[in-house]
Design a protein around this nucleic acid. Structure first.
Length: 840
RNA sequence: GCGGGCGUGGCGGAAUGGUAGACGCAGCGGACUUAAAAUCCGCUUGGGGUUCCCAGUGCGGGUUCGAGUCCCGCCGCCCGCACCA
């Protein structure tokens, strides 16, 4: 073996061998236990970033480990290739979105190959190709046939200058990102998927996701948001229509001091018909964007219509307001305002001088207690509420619902926060929605034999808006039903649709249908899915929905796509900056422009110091990005892979550092030197090393299966140090060989290179080392001896030493006697093999 | 605003309610070397009267023989909020 490991030659050599021997191609016909390991596929932005490297390294270690433990592994890769950045590139650089995307894919694929990932490239797919999105169109038509697709009006962000629809991220401080115009809400007829039909199923299904993080399950449950409440009608006093409201807190009905309706509500519209002021207020509500965060942080505004309704119990007059915080989409578009126990209502009432009453108190004696500047939404006992007084919130809810139902003015109702999924996008670079609009026949699905509806290539991006709409020929077709001239739908599908079934297409890729049912039965569900926490709700919920929808219409037999989910943290980096003297703004520098000392940093260009800023998520604007390619070129793939796994727990953020990658590089070389010391001919036994080796193998296996790579890494460091210090023996050589196998999933190139002199064939195809269970058990344990809960001494005893003996040994300790200082021992707590606690 | 999460040495972190700081990074000291790099050895939470003692896991309370871990209330940071992916 050479003196140093040289990744520049070894990396490519082994990558070629793996390719040529198709080591990582999944065999559909295999009889081995199967394991489908999947990382969220990337958007082809042009370059792999460190976050991708982290994501794919984790999946790769698991995939390689699974292969070593006898599994047939499916570990595929593809491209989430539709989306806005391609259109932005087209507008900025004049390139075609398709050309730009495909070039990016080629570059990023080469980058992934340089990292040595054990991927089955034979199943590669890109969602922007007709052989993918054509099948998606077919599935969309199937869902349509099953009644799960419909059209309705819905609000979008409208840029009145560019005359175009804006994505939420294109709205900055209420203005269009390019034009700077104040954004308005505008109604458009759009396509929707009936995800709400699955609300109950999706909610119940969460319970069965045993291997999902609790936090993600909780977020999904809250997002679906099942709530039981009262839907009821307020009788009008000085007008004719009843107002139907929905409340999740009917218990607080005696605290109602007003009724508020959404700007789009029929009552609001009726009032506006002969009130210019009301019209102006409704127009005001149309200003601004459509996001929930924007709506909820906006100042609470209202308009008193002058209408009054009658309180169902007290008979009191309640004023009817139009309010900007009431949503037409949720419940009935009208609410009863209970300022004492709802924060929005509280702010609203404070602003407009409406009464604020207390109807819930922690203690009945506090019925007259004032509010401390905010609403009290918590639990308690009903007060000032007639027949409800003294009841708990839960009981009072039931009581009010029962009364309303028996008196016939309302009924208990389950309402979901989850809304149907709007999939229409007024954009070019996405899957065309396969429908045709005919004046005579209405909305007509494109016949399946005419799929795919292919995106035209000859489009221009000189003007804002969707180029499909202004394309000279593309949208003009004959109606499939009546044959008369008609037009194609020009909306394309949300890219979340593309990512809602790609994991099914990986199992098999027939040309004539989206997937093969048997292949899905074999491979799905994905055994381990890995991706960012930012996808905790939307992508994962949509993928779950899509899978259930396909199961419901009888196309597949699996209901939940991902058996285990892991959400990894971001990769962060220090920032380097100077404050610009002229305008006081920070000027950022890239890590490559910096020379980093122990606690300081200076700019290479002028040698003067720069400030080391906060460690934050890598972003172009802060220039704190590092290029994986440059790291691979300097240190090789294994060092960067090792860095991704070391130190930080995978679910937390990982701070990148030059020093850290240097340390990984040194460890690569340290292992190389250790592997060179392997000698099959050595003899002699070293029990301590044998034990340490087997304990490490067992622990590392456990850690990898739990994706606790940082712990596995620490174990490997410990074993390495122990083996380095040990005298030559057969045990030591066996341990060296074991270390090689343990690091093989993490540093596959180094492992292959060393294995080529130590082992047979390829280490990528080798078996995980076996352990002797007898060696895993320690025969001696260290016991903590505490006095009043404070550590005073430790005892080393045989494992399983009896309670009485431990007590005696503890009392015999000088240190314990000194700590007791003559005090009488009142109680002794003994945890066998753990500790003795003397309570004085 | 709403929902979710996180907070432990100079830094990343470890710790089934049971010896806080494993392991790594940085730093300091030493060995080797003409010298440097590489490598190896040692030290490294703070304070003190340094074989020992005290304090200590964001802040304030609580439960427990015992709390980094469980409960309540704060503070700070991060993620998501339905057209970014």
């Amino acid at each position: 073996m050479t003196e140093r490991f040289d990744p520049a030659t070894a990396d490519t050599r082994w990558q070629r061998v793996w390719d040529e021997r198709a080591c990582f191609t999944a065999d559909d016909a295999s009889t081995k236990p199967r394991s489908y390991v999947l990382e969220m596929f990337p958007y082809p932005s042009g370059r792999i970033h460190i976050g991708h490297v982290r994501n794919y390294t984790m999946g790769d270690v698991l995939a390689r480990y699974k292969r070593m433990t006898g599994h047939e592994v499916l570990h595929p890769m593809g491209w989430d290739a539709f989306g806005m950045p391609a259109e932005n590139a087209a507008m900025e650089k004049g390139v075609h979105p398709g050309g730009w995307t495909r070039e990016n894919i080629a570059n990023m694929k080469a980058q992934l190959k340089r990292l040595g990932f054990a991927l089955d490239w034979s199943r590669e797919l890109a969602t922007c190709e007709p052989d993918y999105y054509g099948h998606e169109q077919a599935l969309f038509l199937d869902l349509y046939a099953a009644g799960l697709v419909y059209r309705k009006e819905s609000s979008v962000n409208w840029d009145p200058i560019d005359q175009t629809v804006l994505a939420n991220e294109q709205v900055i401080d209420g203005r269009g990102w390019r034009s700077g115009a104040l954004v308005e809400k505008r109604k458009l007829s759009q396509w929707f998927l009936k995800i709400t039909d699955f609300a109950e199923e999706l909610l119940e299904g969460v319970q069965g996701l045993e291997h999902w993080p609790d936090k993600v399950k909780l977020m999904q449950e809250n997002w679906i948001g099942k709530s039981r409440g009262l839907q009821f009608r307020f009788k009008p006093i000085n007008f004719f229509d009843e107002i139907e409201v929905y409340s999740t807190r009917p218990d607080t009905i005696f605290g109602a001091s007003f009724v508020a309706v959404a700007a789009e509500h029929p009552v609001a519209q009726a009032v506006a018909a002969d009130s210019a002021e009301a019209q102006a207020f409704i127009a005001l509500c149309k200003q601004g964007g459509t996001t929930a965060a924007e709506l909820e942080t906006a100042e609470k505004l209202g308009f008193d219509t002058g209408l009054k309704v009658k309180h169902p119990f007290t008979g009191a007059d309640l004023p009817v307001w139009i309010a900007n915080f009431v949503l037409m989409d949720y419940g009935t578009g009208a609410v009863m305002g209970v300022p004492g126990h709802d924060q929005r209502d509280f702010e609203f009432s404070t602003k407009y001088g409406l009464p604020i009453a207390r109807v819930v108190a922690t203690d009945p004696a506090d019925a007259g207690a004032p509010f401390q500047g905010e609403a009290e939404a918590g639990d308690g006992v009903l007060v000032n509420s007639d027949f409800l007084n003294g009841q708990s919130v839960t009981d009072a809810k039931a009581a009010v619902i029962a009364r309303a139902e028996s008196e016939g003015w309302g009924e208990g109702k389950t309402v979901w926060r989850l809304r149907d999924w709007g999939v229409s996008r007024q954009r070019y670079w996405g899957t065309p929605i396969p429908f045709i609009h005919c004046e005579a026949c209405g909305v007509v699905p494109v016949p399946k034999d005419q799929l795919p509806v292919v995106l035209p290539e000859d489009v221009d991006f000189q003007t804002p808006g969707n180029p499909l709409v202004r394309h000279a020929t593309w949208k003009y077709v004959d109606c499939p039903q009546c044959g008369k001239p008609a037009v194609r739908e020009t909306d394309t599908l949300d890219t979340f649709v593309d990512s809602s079934w790609y994991f099914l297409r990986f199992a098999s890729q027939p040309a004539d249908k989206p997937f093969d049912r048997e292949a899905i039965a074999k491979w799905l569900p994905v055994e381990q899915y890995i991706g960012g926490i930012e996808h905790a709700i939307l992508h994962l919920l949509y993928a779950r929905f899509w899978t259930r929808a396909l199961a419901r219409i009888g196309m597949i037999d699996v209901k939940e796509p991902f058996a285990s989910l892991f959400t990894q943290g971001m990769v962060t980096h220090e920032t380097y900056l100077r404050i610009d003297n002229a305008n006081g703004q920070p000027v950022y520098f890239a890590p490559t422009e910096i020379e980093r000392g122990g606690e300081s940093a200076k700019l290479k260009a002028d040698g003067a110091p720069v400030e080391i800023g906060r460690v934050i998520k890598m972003s172009k604007s802060k220039k704190n990005v590092v290029d994986p390619d440059a790291i691979v070129a300097t240190y090789g793939a294994d060092a960067i892979r090792w860095f991704m796994l070391s130190d930080s727990p995978p679910e937390r953020d990982l701070p990148w550092s030059e020093a850290g990658i240097e340390g990984c590089w040194r460890f690569v070389q340290r292992l190389w030197r250790l592997f060179a010391q392997f000698d099959a001919a050595t003899t002699g036994e070293d029990k301590a090393i044998d034990r340490k080796r087997d304990q490490t193998v067992a622990a590392v296996a456990q850690d990898i299966e739990a994706l606790s790579f940082n712990k596995a890494v620490a174990r490997i460091y410990e074993l390495t140090s122990a083996v380095e210090k040990a005298q030559p023996s057969a045990s030591r050589s066996a341990a060296i060989r074991t270390i090689l196998l343990l690091v093989a999933p993490m540093m596959p190139h180094l492992a292959e290179e060393a294995w080529s002199t130590i082992g047979d064939d390829l280490v990528s195809l080798a078996a995980w080392p076996a352990v002797d269970p007898a060696l895993l058990v320690e025969d001696e344990v260290t016991i903590a001896v505490q006095v009043k809960g404070k550590l005073r001494d430790t005892l080393t005893v045989a494992k399983g030493t009896a309670k009485e003996e431990l007590e005696a040994l503890a009392l015999a300790s000088d240190k314990v006697q000194r700590a007791l200082d003559g005090a009488e021992v009142r109680k002794i707590i003994v945890v066998p093999d753990r500790l003795v606690n003397l309570v004085a």
